[in-house]
Design a protein around this nucleic acid. Structure first.
Length: 209
DNA sequence: ACATTAAGTGATT
DNA sequence: AATCACTTAATGT
């Protein structure tokens, strides 16, 4: 597999050559689980197309959405736990059909010192994710579920590149760790504000949120 | 036509 | 914001 063109803006030529040599091309079908909690990750993914949903699972199996990994990104959790061979704290599921490049973690240390662009790529994905997590912690702390819902819808529409979102209220509630009734009410409110249209299992976003 | 599942709503805590 | 209990609407068989 050859790393797509646009990565040349991010990585230096030597590094791209090395990624192409060491990386393995992996396709995952929509809905497949890529990694679940407790597993140890042995490769670090670079998403080429599609998006991956990353969530936490609590003791009773309820899940809380953390973030999506979009194309040209990598998973920050991979860096933080797997580099030192710690098991995964999270679950990752392919949101749609995903193409990715899997690089063995064994080369990470070497690359970090050898390639400046690699280091900044890693730091950038960690920094972005960290900031985003801080934002969701704020929202949870202040109980602003309506803002979290809007954030969720934005992200979901960005991930699928469409203003039409396929999800039931029940699913959304599950991902935001609330009840369906609450989601239905909030969505209804947004619909009355002319920000959305509601259908069965589908939501259409009107204009910008 | 009937059963099943998603969504809407009022009342209560 | 969560839960309950109930209604209404959409969809599958």
């Amino acid at each position: 597999m050859i790393l797509p063109e646009h990565f040349s803006a991010v990585f230096e030529p030597d590094l791209i050559r090395e990624i192409n040599k060491k990386g393995r091309h992996v396709s995952v079908n929509a809905g497949e689980t890529i990694i679940s909690p407790g597993q140890t990750i042995r490769t670090m993914p670079i998403i080429l197309s599609g998006s991956v949903k990353v969530s936490r699972i609590d003791e009773e199996g309820k899940e809380l959405l953390l973030y999506y990994v979009n194309p040209e990104e990598s998973c920050a959790m991979t860096f933080t736990c797997c580099m030192q061979h710690y098991p995964s704290e999270i679950k990752a599921v392919a949101e749609d059909d995903v193409e990715m490049l899997a690089v063995p973690i064994s080369v990470m240390d070497e690359w970090l010192v050898k390639y400046p662009t690699w280091k900044s790529f890693v730091m950038k994905t960690i920094r972005n994710r960290f900031n985003e997590l801080l934002k969701t912690i704020d929202q949870i702390a202040f109980q602003k579920l309506d803002e979290r819902l809007i954030h969720y819808l934005k992200e979901k529409s960005k991930a699928s590149g469409s203003k039409l979102i396929n999800a039931s209220h029940e699913q959304i509630a599950g991902e935001l760790a609330t009840s369906r009734v609450v989601i239905s009410r909030l969505l209804k409110k947004l619909e009355n504000e002319k920000k959305l249209l509601l259908y069965r299992n589908q939501i259409r976003i009107l204009g910008e949120l």
